Amino acid sequence: MRITVGNFLFRTRNALFPLLYLTLFLGGQHVSENAVAMLVAGAAIALLGQAIRILTVGLDYIVRGGRQRKVYADSLVQTGLFAHCRNPLYLGNLLMIIGFGVAANNPWYLGIAMPLFFLGYACIITAEEHYLLGRFGDSYRHYCAQTPRLLPRVAGLCQTLDTFAFNWRRVIVKEYTTLCMTLLVLVLLSSRALNVDARGWQVSGGLIALILLACFAVRLLKKSGRLHAGPLR
């Protein structure tokens, strides 16, 4: 059952998951009266998740999104952050989901949307593990025995960071949409939590415009071929 649900969510997550983010802005209730503290704590957690994603993509990369909206892998990547955690990209996503919820200080998101996110990712991970086990067999069993599913193994992390050349170009090309989304959500949540006036919303609007402009510029450079990540695994 979880495998079937996971495959469905893998195909539809780009359409369904953004709908859950809308609950960040529902209602006027708050979990804590200290909105600023919640905002700072949540932003720190979300940015940590984004940093993990950036490290993952910059050190060693797997092709995301599968093939024809189905789980797929050409090879079993076990280096970079994948040597310390089997799902570092999903770990980053989950931290961002938690961070957004804390920053929003919104009981609707924390009580309904966030558990649905966790359940959804649990099903997706199960579906991916089922596929990888069938494709790579004993190699994947050995990898699972040596590497945690989500909570990363810290031992040897410094050596990994020293060993791999960090590919900033690949980060920009492959991660720009997620990074723009993270910054946009944090700007909107900050404006809401700080209860800014009309001038504050002008500043927020300017930041949003700059983020969207940067995203659009990267997309144009990528489509034109002037900006590319280089060979992938």
Rank of each mutant, 00 (worst) to 15 (best):
M1S: 15
I3L: 05
N7Y: 05
N7F: 04
N7I: 03
F10L: 06
R11D: 05
R11T: 07
A15V: 14
L16C: 12
F17W: 11
P18E: 08
L19C: 09
Y21N: 05
L22W: 11
L24T: 00
L26P: 02
G28M: 10
G28T: 11
E33L: 14
N34H: 11
N34C: 08
N34A: 11
N34R: 10
V36D: 14
M38W: 09
G42D: 03
A43P: 04
A44W: 07
I45T: 09
I45Y: 06
I45V: 14
I52M: 11
I54A: 12
V57L: 12
D60S: 12
D60L: 15
Y61G: 05
Y61S: 07
Y61F: 13
I62E: 06
V63A: 14
K70C: 06
V71G: 00
Y72K: 01
A73S: 12
A73L: 14
D74H: 15
D74F: 13
L76W: 07
L76C: 12
T79G: 08
G80A: 10
F82E: 05
A83I: 01
C85G: 03
N87C: 07
L91Y: 04
G92L: 07
G92I: 07
G99E: 08
F100P: 01
V102G: 01
A104G: 00
A104I: 00
P107T: 07
L110E: 00
A113N: 01
A113T: 02
L116K: 02
L119I: 07
G120K: 00
A122Q: 07
I125A: 02
A127C: 02
E128V: 04
E129I: 00
L132I: 04
L132Q: 02
G134Q: 04
R135P: 02
D138C: 14
D138A: 15
Y140M: 09
H142W: 09
C144Y: 05
T147Q: 13
P148E: 13
R149D: 10
L150I: 03
G156T: 10
Q159W: 12
Q159S: 14
Q159V: 13
Q159P: 10
T160P: 01
F164Q: 05
A165V: 11
F166M: 11
W168S: 11
W168T: 12
I172H: 08
E175W: 04
E175L: 04
T178K: 11
L179D: 06
C180S: 09
T182F: 05
L183N: 00
L188G: 07
L189D: 00
S190C: 09
S191P: 13
S191T: 11
S191I: 15
D197R: 06
Q202T: 14
V203N: 11
G205W: 04
L207S: 04
A209T: 08
I211N: 02
L212E: 15
L213R: 09
V218I: 02
K223A: 12
S224D: 07
S224C: 10
G225A: 03
G230R: 12
G230F: 08
L232S: 15
R233S: 15
